[in-house]
Design a protein around this nucleic acid. Structure first.
Length: 529
DNA sequence: GTATTAATGGATC
DNA sequence: TTCAGACAGATTCGG
DNA sequence: CCGAATCTGTCTGAAGATCCATTAATAC
């Protein structure tokens, strides 16, 4: 008997109502065990709200706007009295992903309406969440991995490792449940199967680090570009993104370079690609790099206009040897030997605070994002964020005034949780929006802020409350970008609230001139466009 | 009927 | 990308 | 020494700016 989609929707409903992770895992594990083998893969993807595998390039091309335009309140008309099955829903998603060309949006909406007509209100609720990728039931890939391990009576660490080296959690689940450890043995590290890159944890300051004794570490420049994993075998080279997408066509010269420079080895390399200015090789802002990313038209022209530079910093596979468990320093040595003629990340080895500080300042002065600090003996842990790798970035601070706020959703329903931030034009005494943020406040502070903002409301629309410019907040951010979206022409990257400044008057907030000055100063380091 | 512009979705950070 | 909150397990504290 | 309090690691879900491609809509 095929499993009905209603059963899966009921499971999601239950998951949403409980908060204990152990209970969630038990529910999931039981559900997975009850499935037919052919249902495991689609069920896993549907439950975690990602219709396709990470390494799969398929997309639904549907978001909330299209859903709103779809008649999803239509009464259920169960065709032929056949209830929706898990497999049927997944097939709908596959069909939706395949629609393209003229009339695609209409076709997609029609197909979506068909799906909605076959579904009950509960099913519809979770179908919508699956399409949006926001399940809100507290189960994402992390807990799914635990549930798969429990259902298959296998080690959590085994499943976790496999999911880090193979971007198809659904297939992993099927293999685990059907074939056990033996079934999973066919998954292995090999060129052209992208691996989740190891990540670094945030470090607030060097003072923080030096509270405890520090043994020598590798300190690398942190480049502001895109993380790339380069796979090579024979004369084939592919480049993958941090989320396992094939991005080879965005950077053909990098693929050629690798082909030429490493003719005699198979390998998997880890690095960062940044945009640089042609004449002096200085880094260009991230925005410029994005103009080359996923580009199809005018590739050649942009290749001339925005050259890129690859910085390598790790090697995960050399010929038939998996290097995850080699210590960092040994991997680096191998990398340096193999990649003669390529550029490695600039680095020093040090345990001296002063020396590291100088190196950090040098990285910033050269227009880079900061530094990474890596333990010399650290193994490469695919997909994990570990204390063995730390990142340190410079934050810029500014006082800005809240001029409006959007109503939150999900767990922030009923709170004004997303604040429009503005800088001051001192001549005119007017405020100009330079970005938004929803980060930095506690739940309690959100509640207070909601009440306070409503007291100074000037007018409101469906999603936004506009207020008198009165509440000043200190905001931290990573960078100022040229903005096509805001009239002021600038926008803050990764703005977050540090504290609410009840002591400050709106007339004292950062001026637009200061924002412009900070922007220009960035580009004394980076290249000016 | 063709060229330009707007809307939408998905990717990076 | 950043951040806070929830949970689970480990470690430390107080009597 | 034991239960309680605190710390640590992991996972989840809030939502931002900007770029590109695709598709739809509008202008001529």
């Amino acid at each position: 008997m095929p499993t009905s989609f209603l059963n899966l929707a009921k499971l999601c409903d239950k998951l949403e109502k409980i908060s204990k992770t152990k209970e969630k895992i038990a529910l999931l594990s039981n559900f997975l065990t009850s499935l037919n083998p052919y249902e495991i893969e689609p069920a896993v993807f549907l439950i975690i709200g990602t219709p396709f595998a990470e390494s799969d390039s398929q997309t639904l091309d549907i978001s909330w706007r299209s859903i709103l335009e779809t008649n999803y309140t239509a009464k259920q008309t169960t065709l032929f009295n056949q209830p929706l099955t898990i497999r049927a829903v997944h097939e709908y998603f596959s069909k939706l992903a395949q629609i393209s060309g003229s009339g695609a949006r209409k076709k997609r909406k029609r197909l979506l309406e068909m799906l909605f007509r076959e579904s009950s209100p509960l099913e519809r609720k979770f179908l919508v969440r699956m399409i949006l990728g926001e399940m809100r039931h507290g189960v994402a890939k992390g807990l799914m991995i635990k549930a798969i391990a429990e259902a298959a009576h296998l080690d959590y660490s085994l499943i976790k490792r496999l999911s880090a080296i193979y971007g198809n959690i659904g297939e992993i689940a099927r293999l685990a449940l059907v074939g056990g450890e033996e079934g999973l043995s066919k998954i292995e590290v090999a060129p052209f199967t992208p691996i989740k890159p190891m990540l670094a944890e945030n470090l607030d300051s060097l003072d923080e680090l030096f509270k405890k004794p520090v043994s020598p570490m590798a300190i690398e420049y942190k480049y502001d570009g895109v993380r790339v994993q380069i796979h090579k075998k024979a004369d084939k080279v592919h480049i993958y993104s941090r989320r396992l997408k094939d991005i080879t066509s965005s950077f053909p010269e990098i693929a050629d370079l690798i082909k030429k420079t490493i003719p005699n080895h198979s390998c998997i390399l880890d690095g960062e690609i940044i945009a640089i200015r042609r004449n002096d090789q200085r880094p260009l802002p991230f925005q410029e790099l994005m103009r080359r990313f996923k580009r199809i038209h005018e590739v050649q022209r942009l290749r001339q206009e925005i050259p890129v530079q690859l910085y390598l910093f790790d090697i995960l596979l050399l010929d038939d040897k998996i290097l995850f468990d080699y210590p960092y320093q040994e991997r680096w040595n191998i990398l340096a030997t193999i990649c003669k003629g390529l550029t490695l990340a600039y680095r020093i080895i040090s345990s001296e605070k002063e020396e590291i500080t100088r190196f950090y300042q040098a990285a910033l002065a050269a227009g880079h994002e900061g530094i990474l600090l890596k333990k010399l003996n650290s193994p490469y842990s695919p997909g994990e964020r570990k204390k063995e790798w730390l990142k340190l970035k410079e934050a810029i601070h500014a006082d800005l005034v809240i001029i409006a706020a959007d109503w939150g959703s999900g767990r922030r329903t009923g709170w004004l949780s997303n604040y429009h931030l503005a800088a001051l034009d001192p001549l005119k005494g007017t405020f100009h929006e330079v970005g938004k943020t929803f980060k930095g406040l506690t739940d309690e502070e959100f509640q207070d802020m909601t009440a306070n903002l409503q007291k100074i409301k000037t007018y409101e629309t469906q999603y936004t409350v506009y207020v008198k410019p009165q509440i000043v907040v200190e905001v931290a951010f990573n960078e100022i970008q040229k903005s096509p979206q805001y009239p002021a022409g600038y926008a803050l990257r990764f703005a977050r609230i540090k504290r609410i400044r009840l002591d400050k008057d709106p007339s004292e907030v950062t001026s637009l001139d200061e924002i412009a000055y900070l922007y220009e100063r960035q580009f004394e380091k980076k290249a000016r466009i």
